[in-house]
Computed example of a mutant assay.
Amino acid sequence: MGLSLATAEKWVERWELQQQRYAVDREDRFTVIADVVEHITADRTDRPTVVDLGCGPGSLAARLTRRLPHADIVAVDRDPLLLELARVHRADAARYVDTVIGADGWTRALALDRPLDAAVSTTALHYLDADTLRRVYRDLAALLRPGGVLVNGDHLPPDDAVLAEVAGCVGRRRAQRQRAFAHEDWASWWTAAEEEPELADLLAERRRRQPPAGAGSAARLSLSDHVRLLRLAGFERAGAVWQYGDSCVVVAVR
Rank of each mutant, 00 (worst) to 15 (best):
R208C: 13
R207H: 13
E195K: 10
L202V: 03
P212I: 00
E198V: 02
P197H: 03
P211Q: 09
A215V: 03
R209H: 11
A215R: 09
A200H: 11
A218I: 03
R206N: 03
A192W: 00
Q210G: 06
D201V: 07
S217Q: 15
L203F: 07
E196C: 07
R220Q: 15
A219H: 14
R206A: 06
E196Q: 08
A192E: 10
R207S: 10
L199I: 05
G214N: 10
A192R: 08
G214A: 08
A204W: 05
E195Y: 06
G214C: 07
A219Y: 08
A193L: 02
L203P: 03
S217L: 15
R220A: 13
R208D: 13
A215M: 09
P211T: 02
A215L: 04
P211K: 07
A213C: 04
L203I: 14
E205W: 08
G216N: 11
A193Q: 01
A193F: 02
A192Y: 00
G214I: 00
A218K: 07
S217V: 15
R206M: 05
G214E: 08
A204I: 08
G214T: 05
L203C: 10
E198S: 05
E196I: 04
E198T: 02
S217E: 15
Q210D: 11
A193D: 02
Q210W: 13
E196V: 07
D201K: 05
L202S: 00
E194G: 01
E194R: 03
A213T: 09
P197A: 04
A218Q: 10
A200S: 14
A200T: 14
T191S: 07
D201H: 04
E194P: 00
L203A: 08
E195M: 07
A215T: 06
A215D: 11
L199T: 03
E194M: 02
E198N: 03
R208M: 12
R220T: 15
R209D: 10
A204K: 10
A218S: 12
A192H: 09
S217N: 15
A200G: 11
R208L: 14
G216P: 06
P197L: 02
W190H: 15
E198Y: 04
E205A: 13
E198D: 07
R207N: 08
A215G: 01
A213R: 14
R207Q: 12
W190M: 12
R209V: 09
A213Q: 11
P212F: 04
L199W: 00
P197V: 00
L203N: 05
R208G: 14
P212K: 12
R207E: 12
L202F: 09
E194S: 02
L203Q: 06
E195T: 12
P211Y: 07
S217M: 14
R206G: 03
L203G: 06
P197W: 00
A219D: 14
S217D: 15
A204F: 04
R207M: 06
A200M: 13
E198W: 00
A192I: 00
R209Y: 10
Q210T: 12
A219M: 08
S217C: 14
A200F: 09
